[in-house]
């Protein structure tokens, strides 16, 4: 009896390993959880892309639920995402702030005038230094900010209507509820 249990041990261990690796197959190692969820938006001050004399700061994000969308004209996935953002902006659910990351001002202005501009305002972060405080490591990335300026959720990769429907809208609704 005792002996047969011992023979079972390797099978149990193997089953455990299979379960472990099976789960690993469906995890994307490129998507890192942000340690900034639940923390206040980092202090920053960046020129607005179209009105450089008007700086955008963490104060600009206070008092309302908003999205901060990190993009750049060099980012291919952002092209696709731009259409989604335009559609979402037309619904007027929350203001979308753009974070133009490691970019050229002229190229960014041309991009917005050609493809449409879904943003309430765009912070222009030419060399990407300010984005380090947000834990940005690529584009596109999107942060959901609550009315107190706290980062509540981060989505890495291009937003799609499906992601907005299932990941963003329920959270935005919940934040609205919290606020009232």
């Amino acid at each position: 009896m005792k002996r047969s249990l011992l023979y079972l041990l390797p099978i149990v261990v193997l089953a455990g390993l299979i379960g472990f690796f099976w789960r690993g197959l469906y995890l994307n190692p490129r998507i890192l959880p942000s340690p900034l969820i639940g923390k206040s938006v980092p202090v920053f001050s960046l020129p607005e892309l179209r009105h450089p004399e008007d700086p955008i700061t963490q104060q600009s994000l206070m008092g309302h639920v908003s999205l901060v969308n990190v993009w750049g004209t060099w980012c291919y996935a952002c092209r696709e995402e731009q259409q989604t953002l335009m559609a979402f902006a037309r619904q007027n659910v929350v203001p979308i702030y753009g974070w133009d990351y490691k970019d050229d001002r002229q190229a960014a202005l041309a991009w917005l005038s050609q493809r449409g501009d879904p943003y309430a305002a765009v912070a222009f972060d030419a060399n990407g230094d300010a984005a380090i405080n947000w834990g940005v490591y690529g584009a596109p990335e999107t942060f959901l900010i609550d009315a107190h300026g706290i980062i509540r959720y981060k989505y890495i990769g291009p937003l799609t209507l499906d992601v907005i429907q299932h990941d963003l809208l329920p959270r935005i609704q919940a934040l609205r509820h919290e606020g009232t």
Partner: peptide, 8 residues
């Protein structure tokens, strides 16, 4: 770095 990007 870890505060912004995690221990990874």
């Amino acid at each position: 770095m870890a505060d912004r990007y995690g221990d990874f």
